[in-house]
């Protein structure tokens, strides 16, 4: 059952991307920026290690919104996010959210993606049409 009333929480999702997800995401997306796939390079430019692609995490936010709307890819109409922090493979990412607007089947979620104490994506809003 999808969340459709203002203030209602969405089911959200939790995922722990394995060590090779940035490599697979690089191949899938075409974004081979070495900060995502080469820990030595990442450290050379001052990062703690290879970091996840921001758009990968946005993909998880999209999935959480789309799943809540019933899973049909046509349900997701708009998604806007702000990238606020780095995230890393082999640590759990959690996407949470709630309904902030509801007009019949047209619903807007506010979502956050966190890893530990760190908000990776915040102020995400998704417009969906619930099946």
């Amino acid at each position: 059952m999808s969340a459709t009333a203002k203030g209602e929480k969405i089911a959200g999702l939790k995922v722990t991307p394995d060590k090779y997800v940035p490599h697979r995401y690089a191949g899938a997306s075409g974004d081979f920026n070495p900060i995502h796939i080469d820990a030595d390079f990442a450290q050379m430019v001052g990062l703690p290690g290879a970091i996840l692609h921001g758009l990968y995490v946005m993909g998880l936010v999209a999935k959480a919104a789309n799943d809540e709307a019933g899973g049909d890819p046509r349900a997701l109409k708009r998604l806007s996010v702000q990238f606020r922090g780095m995230s890393f493979p082999e640590q759990e990412i959690e996407v949470t959210g709630e309904v902030i607007e509801a007009d019949g089947a047209d619903v807007t979620f506010d979502l956050v993606a966190t890893q530990g104490e760190n908000q990776v994506i915040r102020n995400a809003t998704a417009d969906v049409t619930v099946a």
Partner: peptide, 17 residues
């Protein structure tokens, strides 16, 4: 196959993909 590759890495599991 590119759709499959992308869908799998994020975890989009709807058979329509």
């Amino acid at each position: 196959e590119k759709i499959r590759e992308y869908a799998q890495v994020i975890g989009f599991d709807n058979p329509v993909h």
